[in-house]
Structure formats: C-alpha cells, structure tokens
Design a protein around this nucleic acid. Sequence first.
DNA 1: AGTACGAATGTGAGCGTTCACATTTTGCCT
DNA 2: AGGCAAAATGTGAACGCTCACATTCGTACT
Lengths: 339, 339
Amino acid sequence: MTDETAPRATTARRVGIADVAARAGVSVGTVSKALNGSGRLRDETRARVRAVADELGFTPISVARSLLAGRTFTVGIITTDSYGRFGIPVMRGAEDSLAAGEMIAFLCDGRDDPIREQHHLGKLLERRVDGIIVAGRRTDPRRPIGADLPVPVVYAFAPSSDPADCSVVSDERGAAQLAVEHLVKTGRRRIAHITGPQSHASANERAAGLADALAAHDLELVGDPYFGSWTEAWGRFAAAQLLRTHEDVDGVFCGSDVIARGVTDGLREAGLSLPTQVGVVGVDNWGLVAEAARPPLTTVDLGLEEIGRLSAELLLDAINGHAQPGVHVVPGHLVVRES
Amino acid sequence: MTDETAPRATTARRVGIADVAARAGVSVGTVSKALNGSGRLRDETRARVRAVADELGFTPISVARSLLAGRTFTVGIITTDSYGRFGIPVMRGAEDSLAAGEMIAFLCDGRDDPIREQHHLGKLLERRVDGIIVAGRRTDPRRPIGADLPVPVVYAFAPSSDPADCSVVSDERGAAQLAVEHLVKTGRRRIAHITGPQSHASANERAAGLADALAAHDLELVGDPYFGSWTEAWGRFAAAQLLRTHEDVDGVFCGSDVIARGVTDGLREAGLSLPTQVGVVGVDNWGLVAEAARPPLTTVDLGLEEIGRLSAELLLDAINGHAQPGVHVVPGHLVVRES
DNA sequence: AGTACGAATGTGAGCGTTCACATTTTGCCT
DNA sequence: AGGCAAAATGTGAACGCTCACATTCGTACT
C-alpha cells in the first residue's frame, strides 16, 4: 500500500493515463490497449488495468484523443428559430440519434440572422465539428449555409435550395391526405380549408395536397382556401366568414393546430355543435393547443422528432463516408382525438 | 508566385499553422504570436502573417489549444425538461452570455431521469467541459447532480437542495406582489387566487406571496386559494366554482397563463365582461397563450432569459475562480395587456 | 540445449498548438 | 568600427493520448 492511497481529496482530478500505468505496474501503451479493448493483451492484465482505472476514477481526456484522431465526435446544430416550436422536437430527435453514435451536439441559435449564422458556422468549424445540422422553422427552402464546406451538412425541416444538399423534410401533401381520409371516413363531404399565409410554402403545399386528396374521393373543396395568418384570431374570424357563405360545411381542414383551435371556438360560438355537425382536423399535434381545444383536436403529427432522428442518422452516415444527398421525406401520422 | 496558388480546390481543409509559417517565411512560433496578438513582433510581420493566414483560410484547431491550456472553452447544459417551456428561455439566455465569453455549449436532455442525467454528466466530464449548468423545469429544489465535481456547477430555475451550491431562481413571491399591485392600481379589491397543485413549490410560494401582498394593502383573499392543475380546463372549472360562492369577486390572480386563459374563458362564459367587471393576471408571459386569450392577458414575466444569462455569467465567474455560491434571485416584471 | 515463433508488453513518435527561452537581428552610442 | 542592449524571430518541449513498431517473454519443437 503506497502513500498514494491516503490523501486523494479531490475527485476525478488530473488522473492521467500515466498515473494508471504507474499504479498498475504497466506502460501507458498497455493501459491504452486495455481500456480501448484493442491489441493483444492477457485477460488478467486487461482486468487489472481496468480495476486500477476505476479505482483512480480515470477518464481519458477526449480532447487529446480528438487531436490524434483528427475528429472530435461532436456535431453542431444551428437552429434558425431560437429553439421554437419546430426546432425543439427536431433537436430532441437529433440528440437521440447522436447519443447512439457516441456524439454530442453544440447548440447555436442563429435567430434567423445570416450574420449570426455565419459567425456560428465559423465557431463550429474552428472547433472542428464532424458535421452540422441546420434546423429551420419554415418549410420554405433556404439558401445553403455555405459552399464547399469541409464537413457534411444536413438540413432539417427547412430544406436547402440546392438539391444536391442533403435535406430532411415533412410530408406536407401527405398531411393533407391523412386529414381528408379521416374526415371522409367520419362521414364529412363538404370540406373547407382555413390556413396560414400564402407566402408560406407549407400553406400552399397543404392546400395543393388537400385539393388532390379531395379529387381522389370525387369531392370538391367548399369555397376557396382561406389564407390568413397562423393565429387563433384568424381561425375564429375565418370560421365565421365561412359559415356566412357556406353554412352547410361539415368538415374543416386547418393549416395548423392554433388556427384549428380558433376555428373550433368560432364554430362553437356560432352555435354549431362539435364534432356532431362539423369535423375539424389540424396540423402539428402541438399537445398544449390540441388538448386544450374544445373538443380536443384531431390533428396530423408531422413527425418532427423523426425528422431530427433521421437528420442525425444521415449526418452520421455522411461523416462515415456514406453521404446520401437529396431530399428525404418523413411521413406524418394522424392523432385522433375528439374533433 | 509559387505553384501553390493554382490547385487549391478544397476550401479550409487541413491548413495547419506550419503551412502558414512556410508560406509567410517565418516560424510557427511567430505565426502563433502574430495571430494571437501576443509577444513582440514587427507590425509588418504581423500583418503579413495575418494576410497569409486569411489567404490560406487558416483556422487554428481549437482542440490542440485546449489540450495545452487544460480547458476547453465549453460548458455543458443539462436540462431536465426536454427543452420545454421553462428550459428553452433559460438556454437562450445562457447561450447569450456564453457567446460573449467565447464559450459554446453542449446540450444534454436529461428527461427527468437520474440515470440519463448521470450518464450525460459522465460524458460532459470526459469532454472536460469547463463548467455545467443544470436547468430544471420546476422551482422545487432538486438533489445536487453530483458531489465534489471537478468543475463548477450552476443550477438554473430549479435550485439545488444544497444551499452551498450556486443557484439562480425566479422571484415567486415578488411575482405575486407585482400582480397585486396591478390589480389594486386598477381598482380591484376583492381578489381570488386560482393556481396549480399544492405539491408544487411555485404554487405555494405564489399563494404565500399573494397573502403577504394583500395584507400590505389591508386586503384579504376572497375564499381559499383554489389549488388544482396547470391546465385551462382547471381554470375554467375553478372560475365557475368561484363565482358560485363569491359572485362579487373583481380580480383573479392566476398561477399561470394557461390557467388564466381558462379563467378568462370561464368568467366570460358565465356572462361577465372582461376586463370591466373582473381583472385577471397570470404568470409566465407565455406569448402564445397570453396573446390568444380574450382579452389578451396581463401577466408576470419571470425573467427566464435573465435567469439563463445570470446563470452563465455566474458560471463564467466560477470558472475564473470567483465563485459566488448561494441562491441568486432574479426579479420578474409585469407585462400589461388588456386583462 | 538451442532455436524459432507467437503472444504479451514496452517504447517513442506524433497529433497541432502555445509558451518559455535561445538565438539572431537591428539600431544606437562612443 | 566595435560593442551592447533591446527588439524580433526561431527552437524545442509539452499538453495526454494512440498507434506502429521494437522488444521481451514463454513455450514447443528439433
């Protein structure tokens, strides 16, 4: 028993591979092999070294390893929406996949400002991240974050405008189709559409998907799509407007849960009973909104976490040399509640 | 002009300090000095080296620097609420302060699972983060994440149960006081309280703060506090309940915006006109909820971003050897809307 | 007993920086 | 012109680890 045992007051401080080697009576190379399971070593030695490492609370400094390996086992996530409604689930999904690959993520908030974004990009490259995920907040294609970067990039939710980049997006048209199928299955035939501003790609695509899906059932949209804003107030207003000209409507597909909540309130306040007289379907599956609506909203979940997961997986693949460029579409699914 | 200029197809790849030195015709040490602005160097040399570095697109590999410096200029943020309502603003604030200190954050989602949390802690320590921020989602004190860790830790929002740790929390009692002041100033005298479950520290503290603030104005709470859940449904239900026994109530302080929204709906549906007959104040300043309520909610903003900012600043201080243990309280502020 | 060969372990270079110190250059004074 | 100090630059070690290769050890075969 050496005097080493006595005064180790501080935990996990400054224990290097050399300390372990000395204590175990072997060389540093042997310790490295023992701990990484590489090379040829007697089982007894391996076990002894491991035991000593545990005892000393040794953790290898990954930074030293990175320097040698030429990679850092980190990725950067740049989000444009300050960790908002869309970025968060994507991030969560991405973190899931990354953890599985022993990677960890740096987080940067771009705040939708190209200058900030470039600044963060520079910082990330300086830290030699192995790859970058760019998470957007709108489905409209965005300018690539940089040309000819030294690391792979995956665009999540908001695809890159360059089709040669790797992007993962939600299935906007499919969402409309799921909604229509549900409405039709529950007996609705006179279906209207209340959605966000026409300047948003998602509003247009959902509207287009809706038209197609209705056509497939030999149905026609009731009135024109009501384009407005992504707010409850607009949903309420549009619902009232809709009833004025089309009082026989029996289903409404809404561009988002927030709008749908406004629509349910508008319809209810106009004296209709839900879901008996009118069925309402939203998009987003935003728990807080969907569950607080009266009645709780049936809605299309766009699979944002899955987008995050797939983005991270594609990024890991690209880092390992198997890039899969192009646009990858993640299907959504219907969450049936009472509306 | 050497032949170097011609075929540099790939950008920013593998340019080391040695390349810059060679091209500039100086030694690596000189390049280091020139780029870091340290040591004594002729201005001309400094400028020339800088120019060459730019031309070659040289960025120092921070990992090499870290190895030498013994620190990584990174911190870890462990959040317990999967980037939810409370964690997000805190993170955003923290990122702000960190960026100012040339630091960057690793993000880990603990999912309120101690096992996951410990696992992430291990990963962070392995990467030799310079410090850790633990962001909670409830104001109840939490068990410290580890004892005798080799790096400083700051607890944000959810304080550590060990008072010797450094925690940054919101001013729960102050929030109640701000609410009362607003209600009284707008002429309310008969004030009730509808809030979340009694098992949450924040519900209790806000209720206690409310009692104190009312007493300071020689007022008494109308009825007992209505403890329930943090939901709209509870708010609606409790509002109806309240009117049944105390129809002369003219102000309600709600434990959260979500509850407040339910309360406004409940009061309105009972035939009262807001804000004429009853004033309502919430807590959280959750834009989506507060703005969608009818009328838009006056509410107390707990200053979550500021909590994040201060947490990061305290952490940076601690990293620099100026730890400031104890509980730091961040004041909130009132956001006046129409309710 | 001597050799040879495979298994186990040791050794040292090197990853890309920074820093302390050694060395060279410059400018100035006598 | 010679000498000297200060300014400018070069040099090499070090950070903590991994890897390729060198060395040692043990065992079985001739």
